[in-house]
């Protein structure tokens, strides 16, 4: 075979590939499902075969190489077969993937439209209160169907003492609690109330009274922000340090987790300012809380 016929052969293959490309682009234009399937994917397989055979000379390569490549492709098929029943299907034996169902019914197509905030559950019938948005460290809260926010419960299992330490819990934040005034200034655009809902309310309670669901199981009890004595006993710097470096840093329970890696200083200041609004004794403003800790 002379040099020219070699290159002419390759150019011929290339021409076929281009034709196939054109068909695979035009085919789906007609919008028939099976036509799209055949033209787009069928032709893709043919093109891949042509490139592998003529360009990569797989046909004259030793058989062992073909077997290696076929094995890796078969393994991917095996992975697909083992995983699809759980990921592709949205329901199965005794389980429903509410998140996927919810995402299918309220899809996000355009950059503008967001999940309908605060919408009720998917049809799985949770009677729970507003569902939590995923926290992503505060900030953008996509609506999320996942499970149920634990509404402040009448029976907070109060008598269930147990000698557990206090735990801080970043539960997914509910929608913004109406009552709390948005705190201005400290960190522009940062919603301290939402941060409190997502990160603090599980232990400190949505009313800041220290008996959130997880708080109930803790000993010592989480801090109660509605109790004026709490604010007299310490200044904002100590509260800031407790939030930033965790309870152990200020001699309190190590179960109060350090939030320094999730919220920056300005955001923590905004949270501290927000906590003051729980104080029932006429809201000792941040300035007045200058007593020694």
């Amino acid at each position: 075979m002379s040099a020219e016929s070699h290159s002419r052969h390759y150019i011929k293959i290339w021409a076929i590939l281009v034709v196939l490309l054109v068909i695979s682009v035009i085919g789906p234009m007609f919008g028939h499902k099976w036509l799209t399937l055949i033209t787009a994917f069928g032709i893709a397989c043919v093109k891949a075969y042509l490139v592998a055979k003529h360009f990569m000379h797989l046909d004259i390569e030793k058989a062992m190489i073909r077997w290696v490549l076929i094995t890796s492709v078969v393994l991917m098929g095996l992975f697909y077969a083992g995983t699809a029943p759980d990921v592709m299907e949205h329901t199965g034996l005794h389980w429903t993937n509410d998140a996927a169902i919810y995402a299918s019914e309220n899809p996000v197509h355009e950059p503008g439209d967001h999940h309908a905030a605060g919408a009720g559950e998917g049809e799985a019938g949770h009677a729970a209160g507003e569902h939590g948005g995923d926290a992503h460290g505060g900030g953008d809260a996509h609506g999320a169907p996942a499970g149920a926010e634990v509404a402040s419960t009448a029976e907070a299992g109060s008598e269930q003492g147990g000698e557990t330490e206090e735990a801080a819990a970043p539960a997914p934040d509910g929608e913004v609690a109406e009552a709390a005034p948005a705190t201005a200034g400290a960190a522009p655009g940062f919603d301290a109330a939402a941060a409190f809902q997502s990160s603090c309310s599980t232990c400190h309670g949505e009313a800041g009274d220290g008996n959130g669901p997880v708080g109930a199981a803790l000993n010592p009890k989480p801090a109660n922000f509605t109790d004026p004595a709490f604010w007299e006993a310490r200044d904002d710097a100590m509260v800031h340090k407790a939030i930033k470096e965790g309870g152990a840093a200020v001699g309190k329970s190590p179960m109060m987790a350090p939030w320094g890696s999730t919220y920056d200083d300005a955001q923590i200041d905004a949270i501290v300012a927000y906590l003051h609004h729980f104080n029932t004794a006429g809201g000792a403003t941040t300035e007045a809380a200058g007593e020694t800790p």
């Binding site: 509410d98 799985a124 949770h126 939590g132 926290a135 996942a146 499970g147 149920a148 926010e149 634990v150 509404a151 419960t153 009448a154 029976e155 907070a156 299992g157 269930q160 970043p170 539960a171 997914p172 669901p213 997880v214 109930a216 199981a217």
Partner: peptide
């Protein structure tokens, strides 16, 4: 009745539980 960390069941009854997680 919503209880935290306390599950009260009656002996002999067959219970279904719907299990989910919020986070």
């Amino acid at each position: 009745i919503r209880m935290v960390d306390e599950l009260h069941v009656q002996v002999g009854d067959t219970y279904h539980f719907q299990l989910t997680s919020t986070d």
